[in-house]
Design a protein around this nucleic acid. Structure first.
Lengths: 235, 235
DNA sequence: GGGGAGAATATTGTATACAAATGCCTCAGG
DNA sequence: CCTGAGGCATTTGTATACAATATTCTCCCC
């Protein structure tokens, strides 16, 4: 953790994901530097990383803005994630070890615990969910896959979305994880792949349903479809 | 083109891809700055971008090295590319316009011209090939897909590999492009997807065959399999 | 009133200096 | 000979100043 650079990255990221910096906001380096209490140099690094995460876009003239997310963009992201992560699931099924399988069971047990409470503990659910998907990715054993999915899978904000999920949706997610574990236990790559694709795409529709009809934020750029909130995917 | 930063990026990238900086070489910022005739600041930017391209890796302590490419890594990259680009082909087939189709035909005509010569013009082949694949990606119309494939598809160096391809391999590539055009003309996404996957995976085996038994470069790190040359994919 | 040239302003790009951290080498102790 | 602590050399991180570039505003001309 290189102090200032990472602090700036986390700080700006949080400002974007929390909505403090709405989509379309221009990100001046100097202003951000002051907000983060560092100089422009680490802010520049942070902006570059956020750009790679596609949370920030740069104009042809190097001005940075908080990225817009049209509904089409969100759909794109989920499609891509469905493809990549189901591919990862197939690979993982073919390489699964008892240890990793135990880790998956443990993660999903935590999810069960989170949603068993009278009032589901969303934070715990998200933590278990993250661990579950990360473990699969690790077993898949492709550095590239990790790199490409990294930006898509991380779920720092989902907060705003996750709280819209009902107990039934949460339970279905847990249930699909159980099915994945079954596929992994049998080493059935094709099965795991199919479940994962379904898992992700169901999550997309849960998202779309939750946000259907919600107020659009004032738009800025050339978004193609209906503007959506800036946030990351969850499953 | 922000002058110094991009110059550094291109310069370092070329040094890596040409083999002037072999895999495992440590990349000191100061040394690179001097080589590129700029200061460390733009070099840092360039290193970050190259890291995103996975041409450079950083240790936990922030030292940069030219990335190692085991044969497994290369296989991974091709697998991923096959998946992403065949997905792009399906989308493209569903959205193809007459203009774009014409552009594809034109690009492949240039390829035909390049390989028709008594001595194939590899540079022209690569240029046409790049244009062909870029056009498909553009029609696919997914910003994320572009971003994710960008690092994989670019073929600046393939030089070292491409020259190992025989006239037959080059002709087969052209022929597969023709088949893709046919699928696009009919708007058959599934067909286009299948051809593209086959196209990419064939390219992988052409690569693997060309490099089978070639001398390994002295290895540096934790590469998992047999070390391979540092280069990008082609199809 | 519209449009454009040009200055004024704001923003990003680059270089440099210095601070912090890492790695390496030496040498003492066992 | 091995081990590890300490200091020296190297490398990266950060801040700041200045240069280059983009944007905005103003004012003049049509």
């Amino acid at each position: 953790m290189s102090r200032a650079g990472d602090r700036a990255y986390v700080a700006i990221r949080n400002m974007i994901l929390s909505g403090e910096l709405p989509a379309g906001t221009q990100l001046g380096e100097e202003a951000l530097a002051e907000k983060c209490g560092v100089s422009r140099t680490p802010v520049r690094d942070a902006l570059r990383r956020l750009e790679a995460d596609m949370l920030v876009v740069r104009t042809d003239t190097q001005r940075s803005f908080v990225a817009e997310w049209s509904l089409d963009d969100v759909r794109d992201a989920f499609d891509l994630r469905a493809m990549l992560e189901s591919f990862a699931a197939r690979r993982a099924a073919e390489r699964m070890t008892p240890d990793s399988l135990a880790r998956l069971r443990h993660a999903n047990a935590r999810i069960a615990q989170a949603i068993a409470l009278p009032r589901p503990d969303i934070a715990l659910f998200l933590e278990g969910n993250r661990e579950f998907h990360a473990a699969i990715l690790e077993v898949a054993g492709s550095r590239r896959l990790v790199a490409q999915l990294g930006a898509l899978v991380e779920q720092p904000v989902v907060w705003r979305t996750a709280h819209h999920y009902g107990p039934d949706a949460l339970h279905r997610s847990w249930s699909e994880h159980e099915e994945l574990i079954a596929a992994f236990a049998r080493g059935d790559g094709a099965w795991a792949q199919a479940i994962m694709a379904s898992h992700i795409l169901r999550a997309y529709h849960a998202y779309a349903d939750a946000h259907r009809g919600m107020a659009s934020q004032p738009s800025f750029g050339k978004a193609r479809g209906e503007p959506a909130f800036a946030l990351k995917a969850m499953a």
